[in-house]
Design a protein around this nucleic acid. Structure first.
Lengths: 339, 339
DNA sequence: CTGTTAGCGCATTCAC
DNA sequence: GTGAATGCGCTAACAG
């Protein structure tokens, strides 16, 4: 319904389209479009007219239509195992912000540590025509890998390393982490070692590398992923039952390590004198537990920023100099592994 | 490029469209469409033909096009202050899963505790034509409230209560929380109270209600949102400087409370004998700190599930019986506030 | 149950 | 610098 003044009223049910804006501004549809998306190619006077018309009509561009036509949805699909896995939050947060600054929006999917679900979810998300994909971990399904390559879509695999990435990658070697922690604990003089690990792929790679470095079987407690403090308490109970003389435990997450520490202290075990503990992730609380927690630090925010930059560059046609990046890790030595 | 058999080859750059599927299946475009989205209205034989054609062509529906035409994008926009605020993770996770089960995808936005940014972000997201909106907290901007109401879009405000919600709401009263905690601590016999609070709207409402219930000024340390363990340590230092005889601290998050506890123990203060501590949120670690942490429990997952159900019902045309729900809270008494 | 026609709102392409 | 025509891929509306 239009008033006699020609002004669009609030009782209009249908939202204003670019057509309405163009009419209100007295220009053609395409000029209005250009004024909004390519201001450089239109006279300032026209831009101003269009701007006023946008205000008057309450126009909100329909990105579905724009994306359909231009084949650029200005979205990026991101997959995480689960939103509640704290380890990845800095990555997601940093990536989201960097992409937002570049005009992109993130569509987040939870694969639930389930490869089949990851495939299905990826397919669903691809239907939204994202301009890029960022996955946590590697894509293992051959079918999905082929599909993504054929689509020539920018893809960033993160938080892991591979000889044959789908496209781009930013991560680190979990094998190196496992081996480094084993050497570190052995270097401290601990010999009766144990492992508390979440039941996910990357944690198992670290575990296996740890065992390989030790060179003999290591008592291990496996808990469901995502791990947490309560599971850590149970894991230590299990380990002590297996190996009463346990001296040091490597945990696949700081949450798990915190649980191991709590359980140890609850049992009157002194940390690190009677039990040394090493975590993974350098969570914000790791420096503040009593005793403070030795752990493996990975710069999650850097992974997220880098992944975003790769996507933005690729979408912007900027040549990628380094499509694969190992961002490394370091062991942060604190009190929980002794002096 | 087409082969002589008419089969679409992998070297075709352009992705298969419904048109290709229809041709491969030997049916019309719309029949193919219906076979995929309204199976009930098509013969099983036709569905099978279309299914095979989908497999052969590697067809992936373009949801941008479908959404544009049908005016149903099958997406829901969700706003959180920041992804890394752990308090809201169970909500987001539960909501995402429930919506996913209903065929909807979540587009997550981070408002960064900034009202202006929230408005801007909401506008951006509305351009993606979501079928519903879920916000953490209330929408305060009159302009945005009006716009959302006019659009007749399903909106759920969460984690708070209001006399005048934009549309639907599921939350609880932060005033009641603040008052209840004050009464609880006073009932335990503590008189020299203090507050450590994050600098966000809802935390301040709880703080103010706490102060009102106490009936006199309460020493307060305000830290930036989102709060964390390290900020909690600093907050206690600040509070002790203000009020050396401090007996009990109410904290606006469990992370903050954990920091207060760590700092107290580091200073040789016994908890709860010399300092009682109460948190907020019932984080997973709260039951396992030493001593265990008294806190306020809110069922975040229930909020998320309920928000999703409201959106799904509204989108499905199901009448909403209870558009506003107070899901309440309860104080979980543990060791940190004494016997 | 199946098909034909039309058009969602916008940006690309070509003309001026 | 601006405009007219066209179609992105899909589904609503109506016909048969």
């Amino acid at each position: 319904m239009k008033t006699t003044t020609g002004k669009t009223t609030a009782s209009d049910h249908r939202a204003a389209t670019l057509h309405d804006v163009a009419r209100a501004a007295g220009v053609s549809l395409i000029t209005a479009s250009r004024a909004l998306s390519k201001p450089g190619v239109v006279t300032p006077r026209t831009i101003e007219k269009v701007r006023l018309a946008v205000e008057a009509t309450g126009y909100l561009p329909n990105r579905l239509a724009g994306g359909l036509r231009s084949r650029r949805s200005m979205t990026v699909a991101a997959l995480v195992p689960a939103i509640s896995v704290q380890q990845f939050l800095p990555s997601v947060q940093a990536m989201t912000e960097a992409l937002h600054a570049g005009g992109y929006q993130v569509i987040l999917g939870q694969s639930g540590y389930d490869p089949a679900r990851e495939d299905e979810l990826l397919a669903t998300m691809l239907g939204r025509q994202p301009d890029g994909i960022v996955v946590t971990g590697l894509i293992h399904s051959e079918k999905t890998r082929d599909m993504l390559r054929r689509m020539q879509l920018p893809v960033v695999e993160t938080w892991d390393l591979s000889d044959d990435p789908v496209d781009m990658l930013v991560g680190f070697s979990h094998r190196q982490v496992g081996a480094a922690v084993a050497r570190f604990l052995q270097g401290k003089g601990w010999t009766r070692l144990g492992i508390a690990t979440g039941d996910d792929h990357r944690a198992h790679v670290r575990r296996q590398a740890f065992v390989d470095a030790v060179g003999r079987p290591v008592p291990t407690a496996v808990v469901p992923a995502p791990s947490n403090l309560a599971l850590g308490r149970r894991a230590l109970a299990e380990l002590l039952a297996q190996q009463p003389g346990l001296q040091a435990v490597y945990c696949s997450s700081d949450q798990l390590a915190q649980g191991v520490m709590v359980e140890a202290l609850a049992r009157g075990l002194r940390v690190p004198q009677e039990l040394a503990i090493c975590g993974f992730g350098d969570a914000d609380f790791a420096a503040h537990t009593q005793p403070s927690l030795t752990t493996v630090q990975v710069d999650g925010a850097a992974i997220g920023r880098r992944a975003a930059a790769l996507i933005l560059d690729r979408c912007g046609g900027v040549p990628i100099e380094q499509p694969v990046m190992d961002i490394g890790f370091r062991i942060i030595e604190r009190q929980s592994t002794g002096a």
